[in-house]
Nucleic acid binder design. Structure first.
Length: 351
DNA sequence: TATAAATGAGGCGGGCTAAT
DNA sequence: ATTAGCCCGCCTCATTTATA
């Protein structure tokens, strides 16, 4: 049995509503989505009412544990434990997953649960505010499911990408779309997002532009669509890399260890750019920057969508066989140039 | 000493303009 | 027409500083 306890937040609806809907901040919604997947049952930890079932109708109120006197926090924790005692929960075979701040946890609640024989986990402990928002928004249902298995939970570092954005539903729609060409109206997009688009979306064409390194999450949403990696054989493991992450982070801004393409460019330009090898088959930071600049300046990318990622490996072999690109080695016939390239690549040994 | 207020953190999201 | 990028406010928690 796994029980989620979700702390209340300040921002609420202005009218009575089921507890699960009363709290409307991004953080609460993220926590709720998390426990709905990861737990068998969950409750709200309300500063005013203690343990509240998600469906229970609650009037909006203005109360928080933050900054309350020690005694008040202790007696609040005691009353929460009392409510849980009366809830027919078998503590010894229950894992409590707490999604609330330290004020809610550390004044008797965690200790009380543990002394009753329960296991307590705090998946987002020690994360900063932004990190928490990213943590909850970035966790897909699949990821939350995996939390059922490990005994200790370590929050993953936040990573760039579209999944944590409020535009994630749009990314998901595009990801799942059958045809590689999709046309949507404003209202259709708003239905997918379950909220209106900002006014700028209708007023400024620029709102819809792509963005390589900016902060506009809507651009990240559609630019992150599309998986770059094929299914690995024989493990069947699927790469999580998107086109944006593979090309941008590994090929253009990565290092020689993360991209064979970079390795090839680096060894070919070693003398011309005065590149200095470093340990581990990499280049020193300055040299790596020079390679990034060179690639950014010269690289042109053509994207050919393919619906079946499991066939990417076979398609690559066909494409390479037809084009016979001089810098590719795999799937190619041997040549004098390729023998030299192999030798050059050895000039950056991985050791 | 207890409480309240201010501040910092950092990712998200929006508005807008300059540059290409 | 499109891209790059600056600026600002929001959100919440944790910590520091000010006040009663």
């Amino acid at each position: 049995m796994r029980v989620g306890l979700v702390g209340c937040v300040k921002t609420k609806l202005d009218h009575a509503a089921p507890a699960q809907d009363l709290y409307v901040s991004t953080l609460f919604r993220g926590r709720r989505a998390f426990v709905e997947v990861s737990c068998d049952q969950w409750f709200v930890l309300s500063a005013k009412h203690g343990v509240v079932s998600p469906a229970e109708i609650v009037e909006p109120y203005e109360e928080t544990l933050n900054g309350k006197p020690l005694d008040a926090k202790r007696s609040w924790a005691a009353s929460v434990l009392q409510q849980l005692d009366g809830n027919d929960i078998g503590f010894t075979d229950t894992v409590f997953e707490i999604h609330a701040g330290a004020e809610y946890r550390d004044f008797g609640l965690v200790d009380g649960l543990q002394s009753r024989g329960a296991t307590v986990q705090v998946p987002a402990a020690h994360l900063g505010q932004g990190e928490q928002l990213a943590f909850y928004a970035g966790r897909s249902a699949v990821t939350a499911q995996t939390l059922r298995r490990p005994t200790t939970v370590t929050p993953a570092p936040s990573s760039p990408g579209a999944a944590r954005s409020s535009y994630a539903p749009l990314a998901g729609y595009l990801q799942a779309a059958e045809p590689s060409f999709v046309q949507l109206s404003f209202p259709q997009i708003e239905r997918i997002l379950s909220r209106p688009l900002p006014a700028s979306a209708r007023r400024h064409r620029a709102w819809w532009s792509n963005e390589s390194r900016g902060t506009h999450s809507q651009a990240a949403a559609w630019m992150g669509v599309g998986q770059a990696g094929a299914t690995q054989w024989p493990s069947g493991k699927r790469s999580q890399a998107t086109l944006a992450s593979r090309i941008g982070q590994q090929h253009i801004r990565g290092n020689t260890r993360s991209s064979t393409f970079r390795l090839t460019i680096s060894v070919l330009l070693l003398n011309r750019l005065g590149l200095v090898p470093a340990n581990g088959g990499k280049l020193d930071p300055r040299s790596n920057g020079l390679v990034s600049g060179w690639i950014a300046e010269h690289l042109r990318v053509v994207i050919a969508p393919l619906d079946d990622r499991d066939r990417l490996g076979a398609v690559e072999a066909e494409v390479v066989a037809q084009l016979d690109p001089p810098l590719n080695l795999g799937h190619c016939l041997p040549s004098e140039a390729r023998t030299r390239l192999t030798a050059l690549r050895r000039s950056l040994p991985r050791r």
